[in-house]
């Protein structure tokens, strides 16, 4: 493991067992300074538990978490000073206004936060007209915005956000993405856990995929996408003859009338496309359309989780 001060956050060999169930197993990853890390995984993979341990809401069975070089377990107050967090659904004191909730949390910060600062944050998350309304009148999306507001209130160096886009309308999701990009540009390191893959795709620089409490992938977005299978969609006028060619080439495909969805084998997809076109042409099969469909993050994620899930079930 590299020097923990090189990273904004380092999760090192984290394990958590609860009621004889292994929730996390030897989870390790690091968050680069000024980068956005997407924490992906199916439901029950251990994403929220990881975030909870990162802010010391839970204790790990073993392993450590370091934030800006400070050990969360050994020196919690120093470590947590650097962190803004929204874990699970944002909950507030319903009987207080949004502003008063933030005022109270600001008073718990180690840095001086004025009323003007709070109003600026309220405005930044798009709650300018609702700051003085009691939280019990807020919609889910408004609570989510207030959750983000309380997390960024003290200008933390590390942001940990659990499913932050849940409940946001498209405009809210757009605002959120803009805010996160701005914060990253200002040097904030951000961890976003989400099952909305497209949101992660447009935001994250790095990815960690958790499955069954284990890290099954860690790397950049591009690397994960390359893990997915590309597909070639081919339409011919002689589908029965086409089947023969595909079988000869030992390709995996699905057929819908005269259209074939062919899984592109590993290697250069464009070279494969050329090779197949030549094979069909040489046997006199006219091709109506041929379109290469590159793997999306969703394809890659599903391929990865299916593959790892199959291994885990063996």
């Amino acid at each position: 493991m590299a020097d923990t001060t090189d990273y904004a956050a380092v999760v090192d060999h984290l394990s958590k067992k609860m009621h004889y169930v292994q929730i996390l197993k030897d989870v390790s990853f690091s968050v680069g300074k000024g980068r956005i890390l997407g924490l992906l995984g199916p439901n029950g993979a251990g994403k929220t538990t990881t975030l909870r341990i990162m802010v010391h809401l839970m204790r790990p069975t073993s392993g450590t978490v370091t934030i800006m070089g400070e050990d969360v377990e050994k020196d919690f107050t120093k470590a947590i000073m650097h962190v803004g967090a929204m874990i699970e659904a944002p909950e507030f004191y319903n009987y207080l206004t949004g502003f008063k909730n933030l005022r109270m949390l600001a008073d718990m910060s180690r840095t001086a936060i004025s009323d003007a600062d709070i109003n600026a944050v309220i405005e930044r998350v798009g709650l300018a007209n609702h700051g003085n309304a009691k939280v019990k009148t807020y919609s889910l999306g408004m609570r989510q915005r207030l959750g983000v507001a309380q997390a960024i209130l003290h200008k933390p160096e590390v942001l940990l956000l659990d499913e932050p886009i849940n409940g946001l309308d498209p405009a809210g999701a757009h605002d959120f993405r803009t805010l996160m990009s701005d914060l990253r540009d200002q040097g904030t390191s951000i961890v976003i856990s989400s099952h909305i893959l497209s949101d992660i795709q447009s935001l994250a620089d790095d990815l960690v995929v958790l499955q069954h409490g284990q890290v099954t992938y860690q790397g950049t977005m591009d690397e994960l996408i390359s893990h997915g299978t590309n597909h070639l969609e081919v339409t011919t006028t002689k589908p029965d003859e086409t089947v023969v060619i595909l079988q000869q080439m030992k390709l995996q495909y699905t057929r819908k009338e005269d259209t074939f969805d062919i899984a592109v084998p590993e290697g250069d997809p464009h070279a494969f496309q050329k090779q197949l076109a030549e094979a069909l042409f040489n046997t006199g099969i006219p091709v109506t359309t041929m379109q290469l469909r590159q793997a999306s993050l969703e394809d890659s994620f599903l391929a990865l989780t299916k593959e790892k899930g199959a291994k885990a079930n063996v």
């Binding site: 120093k78 909950e91 910060s109």
Partner: peptide, 14 residues
Amino acid sequence: AKNTIKLLLTRPYN
């Protein structure tokens, strides 16, 4: 019960 405890426990106080 209302899960507001996480607001308190993620501040720089033990």
